[in-house]
């Protein structure tokens, strides 16, 4: 850049209008939140059923399970990786958990702990294969997407597993001060994840690795440890999400959460995460999940063909990523 051009660009920056400033300052999540609120208002006007206690509670329960899955998939995305296996891990977890109870006669606690442990081991394998064996995370977790779903179908013989204790569903339907327990659980998990990302060294190192893995390595950050933890958390969150699905349906389903990995990734991206790494927040993930859950709910209430729902979601992802790129280019002064 010549000296003249430098001066000009500095002047241009200084003259930024209020709107331009707003566009620079406000993160993408703000716009997505505004869109979500708009959809809520529209649905409340169009459908008499939308703004009822029953429906809102239903949305809050559904978004809880989806958001936990999205929180998990955020960690690998921040590292500029991806985890395509979270939906299958959720499905497998549900099958293992319900079989431990129904077939092996184990108590809730044992089944719970054993399933969580399985999830963590799966995540560690994903992270290790990515970092140590140098297989791209897309491939490692694509293998997981197929493999773990296959395992879930094999173990269950393709059948649903019933015979869950009554308390489990009662838990999923319970509320504390009119707020669904599932939602509170999601909020607690989300808060912990947010705290880790925003305030601890581990979180900071995830963003650093996603921004520039080589720079992170050169300042002495142990990239393999951080990577392994990120994938372990993704699988752990997927397992929790799978267990909550079992609680909600009161049975284990080998095909549960099929395709949900893509929606989880989409929610993270719509909520401001960058697939190129280094960016993304838990709050954004929640907002993205809420938007998708609302669209799904609204489409049901209005009797819109569920295939349309997929088309709308697809357009939304394309639009948000385009908008994000536009904003980035403007920030870089190229637009």
């Amino acid at each position: 850049m010549s000296q003249g051009a430098l001066t000009r660009s500095v002047e241009k920056e200084a003259q930024g209008t209020f709107l331009a400033e707003l566009r620079h300052r406000l993160p993408l999540e703000t716009y997505v939140l505004a869109l979500t609120v708009l959809v809520w208002v529209l649905l409340a006007i169009i459908s008499p059923y939308f703004w009822t206690a029953g429906n809102i509670t239903n949305i809050l329960r559904q978004v809880s399970i989806d958001a936990i899955l999205a929180f998990g998939s955020l960690f690998p995305i921040i590292l500029a990786g991806i985890d395509l296996s979270v939906g299958s891990v959720a499905g497998l977890s549900g099958v293992v958990f319900s079989m431990l109870i129904a077939n092996a006669g184990q108590g809730l606690l044992v089944a719970f702990v054993a399933t969580l442990a399985m999830g963590i081991v799966i995540g560690i394998i994903n992270g290790w294969a990515t970092d140590r064996l140098g297989i791209p995370p897309f491939i490692v977790t694509l293998a997981g997407l197929q493999g773990y779903r296959g395992l879930a179908l094999l173990l269950s013989g393709g059948m649903t597993i019933s015979g869950m204790p009554a308390g489990l569903q009662a838990f999923s339907l319970s509320s504390v001060a009119h707020v669904p327990t599932l939602f509170l659980l999601m909020a607690v998990i989300g808060f912990c994840a947010h705290f880790m990302l925003a305030y601890t060294r581990l979180g900071r190192y995830m963003y650093a690795i996603g921004s520039n893995a080589e720079a992170a390595r050169r300042v002495g950050i142990r990239v393999i440890h951080v990577t392994t933890i990120a994938y372990a958390l993704a699988a752990l969150f997927a397992t929790i999400s799978g267990l909550l699905l079992v609680a909600r349906l009161s049975m284990g389903t080998p095909t549960a959460a099929t395709g949900s990995e893509l929606q989880a990734i989409a929610a993270a991206v719509v909520g401001g995460a960058s697939l190129f790494g280094g960016r993304g927040t838990i709050l954004g993930c929640f907002i993205g999940s809420l938007l998708f859950t609302t669209i799904g709910n609204g489409a049901n209430l209005l009797g819109i063909n569920s295939f349309w729902q997929m088309v709308i979601e697809g357009l939304l992802i394309a639009f948000v990523v385009y908008f994000d790129n536009l904003q980035k280019r403007r920030q870089a002064g190229m637009g």
Binding site: Y207, S211, N212, E214, A215
Partner: peptide, 8 residues
Amino acid sequence: DLALADEL
């Protein structure tokens, strides 16, 4: 150009 983490 390798030393900085761009997003931080």
